[in-house]
């Protein structure tokens, strides 16, 4: 076509803009600062509640400790009583077992005391000896404290 001037195809003045290669994702939810804020808020609340919980637990422990101290003499006495009861049972059982043996004295082996030491006290014997007249199953129940005397 006449009258049409030749025009070189050129980039726009100032050059092309940067290529948009990044994916455009709309921003959703809270911002990073907000998330941090919420997390810190929740955990500070939790720490405050934890403070009360720990105080409660300390008071509870104190109470339990006092109760244990108060009960200790009673438990000790009960333990001694059970121990003596078992000794009495052993004595009675031995009396009954050995009644036909002439000259047998209970608690001794032909006159030699085997349940008293030099100080005339009962020494710590093996559990097998202490529960000598029980069935073995009962003995192990007692040794492992699965059953009280």
């Amino acid at each position: 076509m006449p009258g049409m001037k030749f025009r070189q195809d050129m980039p726009p003045p100032g050059g092309y803009g940067p290529v948009e290669w990044a994916q455009k994702i709309p921003r959703r939810g809270l911002s990073g600062y907000a998330i941090f804020g919420v997390a810190i808020g929740i955990s500070s609340t939790a720490w405050i509640l934890y403070h009360f919980e720990r105080n409660y637990k300390r008071r509870y422990e104190l109470d339990m400790n006092d109760a244990r101290i108060a009960l200790e003499p009673l438990l000790e006495a009960e333990r001694h009583r059970a121990f003596l009861k078992q000794l009495r049972k052993n004595r009675d059982e031995e009396n009954m077992l050995m009644k036909d043996v002439p000259g047998w004295e209970t608690g001794t082996l032909y006159g030699e005391p085997c349940y008293h030491n030099q100080a005339k006290r009962f020494p710590d014997v093996k559990p097998e000896e202490y529960f000598i007249h029980s069935r073995w199953a009962d003995m192990y129940d007692r040794i492992w404290e699965r059953r009280k005397h």
């Binding site: 997390a39 939790a46 509640l49 919980e53």
Partner: peptide, 12 residues
């Protein structure tokens, strides 16, 4: 049985 506050909230 007796832990009311959970560690996941105390220290996320």
């Amino acid at each position: 049985s007796s832990q009311w506050s959970s560690i996941s909230l105390l220290l996320p």
